[in-house]
């Protein structure tokens, strides 16, 4: 199972990792290379903070974080914890997830 965390603002990727109060967590269980099961849930943080977001990522055993602006301190922390961080991305969440599942996502891309 592969889990991905995406800070969101409405239907878009949130511009800031540290200020997003809504977090989309997507779990994918691949049955074949093209088919699988996707589970989604949205977690709402009472008080958005980068620390709360990092704690959530660790608690949910996240493998990949997709975000836009993130401070170096938290980027390095997540990478140190073995979580892959794809940052400097912007666009609607659906387009980003599609690109992610197709393996075509990379830092610095815009999906608008």
């Amino acid at each position: 199972m592969e889990t991905t965390l995406i800070p969101i603002l409405d239907n878009d990727l949130a511009p800031r990792f540290d200020l997003a109060s809504d977090v989309l967590i997507v779990s994918v269980t691949r049955e074949t290379s093209a088919m699988g099961k996707i589970d989604e849930k949205v977690v709402v943080l009472d008080t958005p903070s980068p620390e709360a977001m990092c704690r959530l990522a660790l608690a949910e055993n996240i493998q990949t974080v997709i975000c836009a602006g993130i401070e170096k301190e938290f980027f390095d922390f997540l990478e140190w914890k073995g979580i892959r961080v794809l940052d400097d991305i912007c666009g609607p969440v659906d387009a980003i997830l599609e690109a992610h599942f197709m393996g075509k996502i990379s830092p610095g891309q815009s999906y608008y």
């Binding site: 603002l9 800031r16 200020l19 836009a68 815009s110």
Partner: peptide, 13 residues
Amino acid sequence: LKCLHALRCDYCV
């Protein structure tokens, strides 16, 4: 882009 995605400012929210 929308300015909040270009600037990434806390004032946006």
